[in-house]
């Protein structure tokens, strides 16, 4: 597996999904440590995890401050933020990781078949534990909505 190709596929996928479906303007931020991105005491973070198997297996994690997730969900659904439920926010966060990972694998190798699991929500402490849980990791931080969104793919059979 070529690290550079996977990183590029992830970045292109993140742009495709967040710009096409969620109308976000974003910048990629290099050299940021995911664990130091947010003041979690002030701003709750939502994290979602998606397992995958196929030519590569492992899982991906996406985390986003709740207030950014609320804003994205409201725009996505065309509703006021006050009308958005936690269930809808969580559904949007899970949908984002699902789309980004499916699209990443299509871009990385259009011939390969990957099986994606069903996205699940993680507590932030589980997220931190999962961050360093495998040998091969790709982390990408994106700046959008005046905050940071973070993605990490952990590969177990690289």
């Amino acid at each position: 597996m070529k690290n550079k190709d996977m990183t590029m596929a992830m970045k292109n996928s993140i742009s495709d999904v967040l710009e096409t479906m969620f109308f976000l303007s974003l910048d990629f931020s290099n050299d940021l440590d995911i664990l130091e991105l947010w003041d979690t005491g002030k701003d709750p973070i939502i994290a979602a995890k998606l397992s995958f198997s196929g030519p590569l297996s492992g899982y991906a994690v996406f985390c986003i401050p709740k207030k950014s997730a609320l804003s994205i969900t409201a725009d996505f659904m065309g509703k006021d933020e006050q009308a958005i439920s936690d269930d809808q926010i969580n559904g949007t966060v899970k949908e984002i990781i699902n789309m980004i990972m499916g699209n990443t694998f299509s871009l990385y190798d259009p011939e390969a078949v990957f099986d994606l699991g069903v996205p699940e929500l993680l507590g932030f402490h589980d997220f931190i534990k999962d961050l360093s849980d495998s040998e091969k990791r790709f982390s990408i931080v994106v700046e959008a909505l005046e905050n940071y969104l973070a993605f990490q793919m952990n590969i177990k059979n690289a």
């Binding site: 190798d109 259009p110 078949v113 990957f114």
Partner: peptide, 9 residues
């Protein structure tokens, strides 16, 4: 409706 676009799929 799918995120997956491999030819085989």
């Amino acid at each position: 409706i799918t995120t997956e676009g491999s030819k085989e799929r």
